[in-house]
């Protein structure tokens, strides 16, 4: 009886200590980022002023924006395609049930971790200084980071396939390559498609900001208009981004439904 009481007391003490620690951490972080409601309230007039200068949007630049919009889409398409291309072999090597040995497994996992940990914007900064301004460094930035994401997703999908099927194919004397093509590909194709399309969607949104660091597309126009205080143009560009992303999301979900549903 006493033992149980002691036990419960200890438990609640631990819980209380933990709760306090979490609260302390939040308060400390709030000071770190100058989190303050007063600042927000004081900022409201500025925000209102900014928005009023954006109205009405300047649609006369629409025809000039066609090219950067298409460029943004092109960046996302190539960034995603290259990523898919590179993440397939990496994903296979990084899947426990199909990797040839521990060396390849560890190496591919480390590469994927590094690619995933480095954000698109950092890659873009690096590639802009390496290959110069323009859409190409944008493509590379998306391709590198997305390879890290897709490779990990593919590896997980491969690790989740039905073991029995792999065993059955092994029992027929099939080569590893045949096991991949006949056993694994059909099993992971729905996930493969979902992840890849989702990544494309994400890359399109990402492509609209890459231009801020000089990697082509709408982002470049966006940052230029802001620097020149042409806020009415900024508004137009934001609307274009919104419309483009919405349309592509719609196209994406149509493709997904068509392929997976059918």
């Amino acid at each position: 009886m006493y033992k149980v009481k002691d036990f419960l007391l200890k438990l609640s003490q631990k819980k209380a200590a933990f709760t306090l620690a979490v609260i302390a951490f939040y308060v400390w972080s709030a000071f770190g980022v100058n989190l303050s409601i007063i600042n927000i309230i004081e900022g409201i007039p500025n925000i209102a002023d900014f928005i009023s200068r954006m109205i009405p949007p300047d649609f006369s630049i629409l025809d000039k924006m066609v090219e950067p919009t298409l460029e943004t889409i092109q960046i996302s398409v190539w960034g995603t395609t290259l990523a898919i291309f590179f993440s397939i072999p990496l994903g296979l090597l990084a899947a426990k049930n199909i990797t040839p040995n521990n060396f390849w497994y560890t190496l591919s996992r480390q590469i994927l971790n590094f690619l995933r940990a480095t954000s698109e914007l950092i890659f873009a900064l690096v590639f802009v200084s390496a290959v110069g301004l323009g859409p190409f460094p944008g493509v590379l930035a998306l391709a590198f980071h997305s390879t890290g994401m897709l490779g990990k997703f593919y590896a997980e999908a491969i690790e989740n396939v039905d073991k029995g099927v792999i065993e059955a194919l092994e029992a027929t004397g099939a080569h590893k390559l045949q096991i991949i093509v006949f056993g694994i590909v059909p099993q992971i194709s729905p996930e493969f498609l979902t992840y890849s399309l989702y990544r494309w969607e994400h890359n399109l949104r990402q492509a609209t900001v890459l231009g801020i660091v000089g990697a082509g597309g709408l982002g470049f126009e966006l940052i230029t208009s802001l620097r020149l205080f042409k806020y009415r143009e900024t508004a137009t560009i934001l609307i274009i981004i919104l419309v483009t992303v919405t349309i592509m999301d719609y196209v994406n979900s149509k493709i997904r439904n068509k392929v997976i549903g059918g």
Partner: peptide, 25 residues
């Protein structure tokens, strides 16, 4: 060759393709 309790067919593939798997080796 071997057959299994859970059949272990490639579920999303056609019957023909499953049978052809027997020829892979």
């Amino acid at each position: 060759s071997m057959i299994f309790q859970q059949f272990n067919l490639v579920k999303r593939s056609s019957v023909l393709r499953n049978v052809l798997c027997g020829r892979l080796g």
